[in-house]
């Protein structure tokens, strides 16, 4: 994305959440999720809850579904590691779960501390029995989220949609050359 141009894919993701009757969004922010979080916070029929750690969101969305609300978890790839044991709640109870994960540690990442969890994220999610979808282009993002929500809530399964760092744009640091 070039300077000043506003990407359309976050709004398309939000439209999917509304169309699929998602009522709760739990998040630990990422720059790549900022527009989507703003939309969710502003929507009168949606409750967006900021978490202290991503695993809280897994438990919170389990409770949401027990009470009849559909929810989606927004986080960056570093947060996937924080969720691992809490994913067992979802598997043991055969509950739906949808995570929308912005990827760090790839595509020109400046901060090497993001790389280990970024590399491990797809395998960790698959190992914990989430179905993993990866969007590499803006056009893929909304249809993949839509498919993941349908499949997870219709089939009581867990899935993650990874938004690649190339798609969201690499994070800029002032010290970069």
């Amino acid at each position: 994305m070039s300077g000043g141009e506003v990407a359309a894919w976050p709004d398309a993701l939000f439209d999917v959440l509304v169309a699929r009757d998602v009522r709760q969004v739990a998040y630990v922010p990422d720059a790549g999720h900022s527009r989507l979080i703003e939309c969710c916070e502003a929507h009168p029929d949606m409750t967006a809850t900021v978490l202290t750690t991503e695993e809280e969101g897994v438990a919170l969305l389990a409770g949401a579904w027990l009470g009849g609300d559909r929810g989606v978890l927004l986080m960056q790839s570093s947060g996937v590691g924080n969720c691992v044991n809490m994913f067992t709640l979802i598997e043991n109870c055969r509950m739906p779960l949808v995570a929308l994960v912005t990827m760090r540690g790839e595509w020109g990442e400046f901060n090497p501390w993001q790389e280990p969890m970024g590399r491990a994220t797809p395998d960790v999610l698959a190992r914990m029995n989430l179905q993993v979808h990866r969007a590499d282009t803006p056009e893929d993002a909304a249809p993949m989220l839509d498919a993941a929500i349908r499949q997870s809530f219709d089939g009581f399964s867990a899935s993650a949609v990874l938004l690649s760092q190339r798609l969201i744009g690499r994070k800029a640091f002032e010290a970069e050359r």
Binding site: R23, Q24, A26, T47, T49, L51, E55, E56, G57, V58, A59, L60, L61, A62, G63, A64, W65, L66, G67, G68, D69, G71, N85, M86, T88, L89, N92
Partner: peptide, 20 residues
């Protein structure tokens, strides 16, 4: 009843409370 998911009880109840 939770038999695992340690650390998640209050957060799970929060999601339920928001829904109901």
């Amino acid at each position: 009843y939770l038999w695992g998911a340690m650390g998640g009880t209050a957060a799970l109840a929060l999601g339920l409370a928001i829904a109901r």
